[in-house]
């Protein structure tokens, strides 16, 4: 039986889709079987980040409405045998999917795959409820900005209310140079405020823009620091104890690391 992770944030544009693509790819690159589900109905994006947009025939709504079988809608990745994408519907009504259907879908998928990665839409309405309905665990993405952290705080409360306890946090778009100058909140500040476990930190990295242009997830780029950070996150999800990369730990939180990663449960 696999595990279902929902990638969520509240605020839009903080990196949920990028994170979903790269955690999925990272896990597949270490031999896991993974399906990524895009639940952002009407704003389909995970397909282009993965470079799979030309292969889509059926989508999530086709599956929940029974227009096709689940297997028919799963798009095989170009790079990894064990990696699949279930794309969001682009033209259908948002209310076409119900939380109960998502629960069933997630159950079916985790029977077949080691990991189910759900890319959640922005907001706290229906799309959020669908995305979280079948999830076993939640990963909250934020950036070091007031609005993003505030929304993350709200989302953590809502996750708890939905019985998705102990979510972990990814801080995206961190700029160590700005942190050093005192012009950006650092890892400690954010963890202190949100009081949840840190899963990883992704730097602001132009390699993400370049790889998204190409449809090649940055997790496959061995020379980029964002790619390295995503590969580390994927390993942590499998239970490996991987310390933060040196630049991530720059603000002297190295000592706290052991405490933060309680991942060996």
């Amino acid at each position: 039986m696999g595990e279902v992770f929902v990638i969520t944030s509240g605020k839009g544009g903080v990196g949920k889709t990028t994170t979903s693509a790269n955690i999925g790819t990272g896990l597949a690159s270490i031999g896991k079987t993974v399906v990524m589900v895009d639940t952002d109905i009407g704003l389909r994006n995970l397909d282009v980040v993965m470079g799979l947009e030309n292969r889509i025939v059926y989508d999530l709504v086709d599956v929940t409405q029974g227009n096709c079988r689940l297997k028919q809608a799963l798009i095989k990745d170009k790079r990894f045998e064990g990696l699949c994408l279930l794309p969001a519907a682009q033209t259908k009504d948002k209310s076409a999917v119900m939380p109960e259907q998502m629960k069933d879908l997630c159950l079916n998928l985790k029977n077949e795959f080691d990991y189910v990665i759900i890319d959640c839409p922005a907001g706290i309405e229906g799309g959020f409820k669908n995305a979280t309905a079948g999830a076993d665990k939640a990963i909250v993405v934020t950036t070091p900005e007031i609005a993003a952290v505030r929304d993350a705080d709200r989302i953590i409360g809502l996750l708890e209310a939905a019985e998705l306890r102990n979510p972990t946090l990814i801080i995206n778009r961190l700029r160590p140079d700005m942190v050093k100058k005192g012009d950006m909140m650092d890892i400690d500040d954010i963890i202190d405020i949100l009081a949840i476990k840190l899963l990883g930190v992704i730097p602001e990295d132009e390699a993400i823009v370049i790889s998204t242009n190409r449809g090649e997830p940055v997790a496959l780029d061995m020379n980029s620091s964002a790619g390295q950070a995503y590969r580390n996150i994927a390993k942590r999800l499998t239970g490996e104890d991987i310390p933060l990369i040196s630049w991530e730990a720059e603000e002297g939180i190295l000592g706290k690391l052991k405490k933060i990663f309680g991942f060996k449960e």
Partner: peptide, 22 residues
């Protein structure tokens, strides 16, 4: 004060409100 400490303080306050009103 650094812009980061201003951000942190504003965030702290806004969350007191958010959490209480929720």
């Amino acid at each position: 004060p650094s812009s980061k400490s201003i951000a942190k303080e504003r965030l702290r306050l806004v969350l007191v409100h958010d959490r209480a009103s929720i």
